[in-house]
């Protein structure tokens, strides 16, 4: 996919200088520290990073699902088709959730209400969001279940969530999320809780649906394999910052940022020989109550310089459409 940096391509979603803090008993956690990215129509954009780096918080902020308190969006804009979602009243937000932006979650086991049949839940959601009659909603639900390849969809409608396997449940959740034809689907680690073969099925399904329905996907994951399979562009996050952003192919090939390099070195590679050990990134994720000054990665960075300890690096455009936040490339 052609990714010219900014400007010329119309943007579906633009997150601009987002700051989110969590006010806890121990102090203020600066979870998101100036995150910016764009999502274009029809693309899959991945946010990658370790647990606790702020991927999910960013995703939830888009739908304004951050629990407040303790969370608080301190600044920035989230422009969806030009509308700043952070400025509209909660009531208008309901018009976006599920209709224009949908979300699927990590745990398919618990994303469905256990006391209603799958059919009831699908029909209810569709009737609510599309203002159609129950019969029409039923037909749409049936079609969606067939689309996500649930066998014997009509029968599946009368079953309860616990009667399905994890993979099937995730398919149902995807069907529900896509039932109203949203232009953006936020997928928060959609395959993490599934075993590998089922993962592949779900990834294929999402790729296929994305192509057919023209939905953009914001993919949250820590799995670089999933990124390679699905996404057009990637942003690598570390401790509330985006440290590298670019097309998937360039990132997989070049890896400018030391953290990205570390992340990739931690993937096992076949045929590398028996003796090589997996490399790890030394140290651990910083406590965001007291984020390190300057570059947040500097305590773990093999190329650390004096300036890294003092000054937070800016995102630099190294190649067209490829950004890195590191003093090495100044």
């Amino acid at each position: 996919m052609d990714t010219v940096s900014t400007g010329d391509i119309e943007k579906l979603l633009r997150v601009n200088e987002l700051y989110i803090n969590f006010y806890t008993y121990e102090g203020v956690v600066k979870a998101i520290d100036g995150v910016s990215f764009d999502i274009h129509p029809n693309e899959t954009f991945a946010l990658v990073g370790e647990t606790g780096c702020g991927k999910s918080v960013t995703a939830r902020a888009i739908l304004r699902l951050i629990p407040t308190p303790p969370g608080k969006i301190e600044g920035g804009e989230i422009l969806f088709n030009g509308v700043d979602l952070l400025k509209i009243p909660e009531k208008e937000m309901l018009e976006y959730r599920g209709k224009k932006i949908s979300m699927i979650f990590q745990e398919p086991m618990t994303s469905l209400n256990p006391v209603f049949t799958v059919g009831d839940q699908l029909v209810e959601t569709i009737a609510l969001n599309q203002k159609v009659s129950k019969e029409e909603a039923y037909n749409i639900a049936l079609k969606m279940l067939e689309r996500v390849r649930i066998p014997d969809a009509e029968n599946a409608m009368t079953k309860y969530p616990h009667e399905f396997s994890g993979g099937q449940r995730q398919r149902i959740v995807i069907a529900m999320a896509l039932s109203c034809n949203p232009s953006l689907l936020i997928a928060d680690e959609p395959t993490t809780a599934l075993d590998v073969t089922v993962q592949a099925q779900i990834i294929n399904l999402m790729n296929e649906l994305q192509k057919n329905m023209g939905t953009s996907i914001l993919l949250i994951t820590h799995d670089l394999g999933v990124v390679a399979e699905m996404s057009d562009r990637v942003a690598v996050m570390y401790a509330g910052n985006i440290v590298e952003l670019g097309t998937t192919s360039v990132i997989f090939e070049k890896r400018y940022h030391p953290y990205t390099q570390g992340l990739f070195n931690a993937i096992p590679v076949f045929g590398k020989g028996k003796q090589t050990r997996l490399e790890e990134i030394p140290g651990s994720v910083p406590n965001l109550l007291y984020p390190p000054p300057g570059c947040r990665f500097h305590p773990r960075c093999p190329h650390v310089m004096d300036i890294c300890r003092k000054e937070k690096p800016e995102l630099i455009e190294l190649e067209p459409g490829h950004y890195v936040r590191c003093h090495l490339y100044r």
Binding site: S102, F105, E107, T110, N113, T125, N129
Partner: peptide
């Protein structure tokens, strides 16, 4: 629970979540 968050992400209002999702459970 996640299904409540899921319901919210699909555009259910507070009242709807309270009476249609939480109460039956």
């Amino acid at each position: 629970s996640q299904f409540v968050e899921a319901a919210r992400s699909l555009g259910a209002s507070n009242r709807r979540i309270m009476f249609k999702h939480i109460l039956p459970n």
